[in-house]
Amino acid sequence: MSELKKITYREALKAGIREALLNDDRVFLMGEDVGRYGGAFAVSKSLLEEFGEDRIMDVPLSESGFVGAGIGASLAGMKPIVEVMTVNFGLLPMDQIVNNAATLLHMSGGQLNVPVVIRMSCGIGKQLAAQHSHSWEPLFAHIPGLVVVSVGTHEDARGMLHTALEHPDPVIIFEYTSMLNLEAEIQIDAGHTDISRAKVRREGKDISIITYGIGVYKALEAAKRLSEQGIDAEVIDLRVLRPLDEDCFIKSVSKTHRALLVEEAWASVNISSEVSARIMENAFYELDAPVKRLGGSEVPIPYPLHLENASVPQVEDIENAVIKILRP
């Protein structure tokens, strides 16, 4: 058993970036306020002092421009980490991401690789209202050519960037604003994340709770409470939202015969919709109960705390939904 270390999600992300910069000279970080400000969420604090302004580049507010430049730099041999402050600003460079990053390899007949990594913070923060709170992983996961991953744990916060940078195709990494100060213990030598695989975060036999991102710790907490009531829930962290690791959740559902799908993104046409469809296609006869989804309320997320909380699934909601499936 290796040594455990207590670390915040923010520190874990920073450790991942720092390791990447030390590991390969072609890696550089660019984004709004990543340098002198230290990162809008203080993730890259002090990296400018350590690595200098060629490798930690503050950029103007021109998301389309600098994301496109990151894509261009990756075409010409660099390994850029492009930070888009939050996914809410992530629609401005959507043209670059869809029409260039995701398209060039196929459209050029396999000639042009785009090994860019784009990090975006995502999900509700603390009462940041409708233009700073959304979870738009499904918008990006819709696009073939992108690898879309979600950082649901501290272990992945530190270990995912390395693998993403090794990937020859564009990788979009979603990180979660509300988890930044969260502390957890991780193994010092936990290593790098396999970004082609989902991960069983808790084994159980009664139901599969399939989730990602913020949902992971919430589902684990719900599973803990449920265990006190004699319910043994399995928790799957999808981790990679495109291409989905179907084998992992089909195997789990085939074992537990029940599934609850949880995420913060708007409920219609989200990741759970896709997971649900795949369960129907591949494991319909394994099911003992209909698949149930718990998604975000379909509203622009409002400012007041009680309404913000009501906009996304909470631990109690997960707990109640599981009980309803198992003890109708």
Binding site: R26, I71, L75, N99
Partner: peptide, 29 residues
Amino acid sequence: KEKNFFGGNAIVSGHLPLATGMALASKKL
């Protein structure tokens, strides 16, 4: 790619940021 010919870009102006980024890579490398 062998001839360093990068398209063939049909989103008007979409390739200008790419060009800036490619030049940035040349500078860095």
